[in-house]
Design a protein around this nucleic acid. Structure first.
Lengths: 230, 230
DNA sequence: ACATATATTTAGGAGCCCTACATATCAAGG
DNA sequence: CCTTGATATGTAGGGCTCCTAAATATATGT
């Protein structure tokens, strides 16, 4: 009677995942346009402010901004010029390399950046409809995808835990907090993994690879305790 | 000694999820800029082509395009004008409403749209690093988030399974295929949920709510058999 | 010192995205 | 039929986003 095979007639699962991600990406950008109007900011400018806020107080070079935003240096230069016109960003020459400029937020830029940081609140509620373990699995999935993109050179590397020299995955018994951060000397779980940790220090390629294998070896979150007993 | 509490010192989990989603959204858009150059398309134009491809052969009105892209009608009009100049899109008056324009792809537009559909392949590989059950949980999470955004009016409603009158969640025993689609009369699972099913017919508000409750009542996929042992 | 590489800026061009404002058309009511 | 108000689209103008190409200044290596 009714036993058709949906797996046969539908496109790969990954297609649907991507279309969902695209929908959220679109929502984020369009939200940024609308919110930005209140503050006189465009999405790109807002991203620059956010980046400089994350990098404060050290600041960042123009080329670092361009890299992070995945645009050409010329585009980044435009956006920064607009922000300087608005009094939100300052530039100063880098003492060690006179070609480079060091960008930093003005006090008003700092205030504005704080406001920008609240834009994604509308998504917070949506993420909040997932229970904690769903969120953890979801985050782990994002980490896996983003790392793959970074390894392939599709997107710029960011300061992820999984590429950090202090990251020691799956070293604890507690299934909720199996990993360890050597820097703060504390156990943590998938749900704590960061994409942009200010303290991150990249590990060497082999160490990174080894940690990655150990990280991905055990299935997911607190779902299944590992098979191996040390 | 070393038992610090990471939950206490880190930001809410949802923040990290959002920052990951933002990274992927950024990657998608910047990828679109770069790929678009080959075909002489901008991201917005590409989205219009993709939408018209999905809506073929019926076509779509300009206002529908604007809605879907979450931009003002004027912006959509601009983008469409560019596509018409390039010979990829045609417009004809709608027979029932002489104010409206019906947009459709030209043969060349159709070809171009096929190429555009392949852009997200770079993400396919990234999604592919998740195993099937991870992907299913991930997709389910996206569905929950996107539905929440739609219910709140934060993003335009799309033709999602979970809002369809043919959707009957959790009616089968098979944990891999617990749902049923009344239209094709077949069982399916979380991994088959669509965001833009061409056949979707919206259910009434109460029916939608009831289906949603039944859908979210059971935890996730076959991913977490934590307590029950078959 | 001299070529080459790097960091940034400028110029020019198509397009994005908005707000206003202008048309055309529909749907109702008188 | 003929206003009135809502709807569907288009035009104009402005600031920005993006790009490439080309200029400028500085660093680095031989």
């Amino acid at each position: 009677m009714s036993e058709r095979n949906f797996d046969g007639l539908s496109e790969p699962l990954a297609n649907r995942v991507i279309s969902g991600l695209a929908k959220i990406g679109l929502a984020l950008r369009n939200r940024a346009w609308r919110e930005g109007e209140r503050l006189g900011l465009t999405p790109t400018q807002a991203q620059v402010l956010t980046l400089l806020r994350a990098r404060a107080p050290a600041g960042a070079r123009l080329s670092a901004v361009a890299d992070d935003l995945q645009v050409r240096a010329a585009t980044a230069s435009d956006a920064v010029a607009a922000l300087i016109r608005k009094g939100l960003v300052e530039k100063g020459r880098d003492p060690v390399d006179a070609r480079a400029v060091g960008l930093s937020l003005t006090p008003e830029g700092r205030r504005t950046a704080e406001e920008v940081a609240e834009w994604p609140d509308f998504l917070m509620r949506a993420v909040g409809t997932l229970d904690e373990s769903e969120q953890a699995v979801f985050l782990r999935g994002l980490v896996k995808m983003i790392r793959e993109l970074q390894v392939r050179g599709e997107i710029p590397v960011s300061r992820m835990c999984v590429a950090c020299r202090h990251f020691r995955p799956n070293v604890h018994e507690d299934p909720r907090n199996p990993h360890h951060c050597g820097l703060v000397d504390a156990a943590f779980g998938d749900r704590h993994l960061r994409f942009d940790c200010p303290e991150q220090e990249p590990a060497g390629p082999e160490a990174q690879q080894a940690a990655w294998e150990r990280f991905t070896a055990s299935p997911a979150a607190p779902a299944t305790p590992s098979k191996e007993t040390p």
